[in-house]
Design a protein around this nucleic acid. Structure first.
Lengths: 187, 187
DNA sequence: ATCTTATATATGACGAGTCATATAATAACA
DNA sequence: TGTTATTATATGACTCGTCATATATAAGAT
């Protein structure tokens, strides 16, 4: 599971609570790995059972106690092992291509509207990517490692380039559909 | 659920059994929507309960009886409705970017090896895409609709272009890492 | 003679992730 | 005064998808 190892990755930077981890995910890897709060907590429980992390309960007044998780040597080893092991090839799974596949049922106007809607989403995503560096800035300063920051930037670049490629595809297809329509109108 | 509507989409072309559907998926949309056999059967059961398809049991000697599913008017309407409705924006989920994000832990040589491995996978995928038109040819002939075939081709083009974009990203990053290493060796 | 492949449907167990909600106190806002 | 946000952890119910396996017969390959 990738979430497990992402958590180990964060705990390798510093001990954190589940709450801290949720914030860390949201401000750094969210653009390619959104993490659910309840799943983080459940995964922490499992990591503890496996001996990859240990829990330190930090009592607090006025607030629920914090459970701060520390990476163990076994956990650090597991992280390293996982990082060096290529993941099994992922199969593509693009739900909206099913729409494209069967969309011949609709009129060209409807299809263009659908593609435009999708293009608008991708443009919004590109704008979100613009804000990622700011959001992650706090972490970059805390870690103080240009090497880490270098690789973080790579993931953002990947997202931007994939989104751009998808957008270019959409824009091209919209153009083709429009041209097909305008030429048939003239007949 | 997308699988539901993909099944409706296929049944709109012609009545089919679960077994037929599995073959249809494998030879046409597999490159962006791999479908599990057991899930197809379970989904057919659900579609029947919802009244979107009806079952016709075709007795066979020597073989298990076929259960041929027919799209109902309600199912056809649902398919059309779904096709014209934009799907909620999908969040990106790219497991191996988690590796990239935390990969600073490893040596550059290890990182390059990891990226190369991934690039090899993408090249293999591109070769698979080359074979898709042949595999889908039987369906294209059966449907006899240039309009449908046009949209089928779009989905393949999407896969090819996304894969190429990912591959270009990888090749660029590998090059950068190699250059960083060769220049530091010379110091 | 045995193994694999094709035809055909089906279930159980599991994994990963989502959504809603519970608990509990404080602080800020309207 | 009531609502919302922040800090903090946790569980139940659910969805979608995967993997293994069961049943049953025949044809073809080794």
């Amino acid at each position: 599971m990738s979430l497990e190892h992402a958590i180990l990755g964060f705990l390798n930077y510093a001990p954190m609570s589940g709450y801290d981890l949720k914030k860390a995910f949201d401000t750094s890897v969210r653009h390619f790995w959104p993490a659910d709060q309840s799943q983080i907590y459940r995964t922490l429980k499992e990591l503890t059972e496996r001996g990859w992390v240990t829990v330190e309960v930090v009592p607090q007044e006025d607030r629920p106690n914090r459970k701060v998780y520390h990476l163990t040597d076994a956990g650090r080893e597991e992280l390293r092992r996982w990082l060096a092991t290529p993941l099994p090839p992922e199969e593509l799974r693009v739900p909206w291509l099913i729409q494209v596949f069967f969309v011949g049922q609709l009129t060209d106007a409807e299809i263009i509207a659908l593609l435009e809607e999708h293009a608008a989403e991708l443009r919004a995503r590109l704008r979100q990517y613009d804000r990622v560096p700011q959001q992650a800035a706090a972490y970059a300063e805390a870690i103080q490692s240009p090497r880490e920051v270098f690789f973080w930037a790579l993931t953002l670049d990947y997202g931007v380039r994939m989104t751009r490629a998808a957008l270019e595809w959409l824009e091209e297809k919209i153009r083709i559909l429009r041209e097909m329509n305008s030429s048939s109108e003239g007949e």
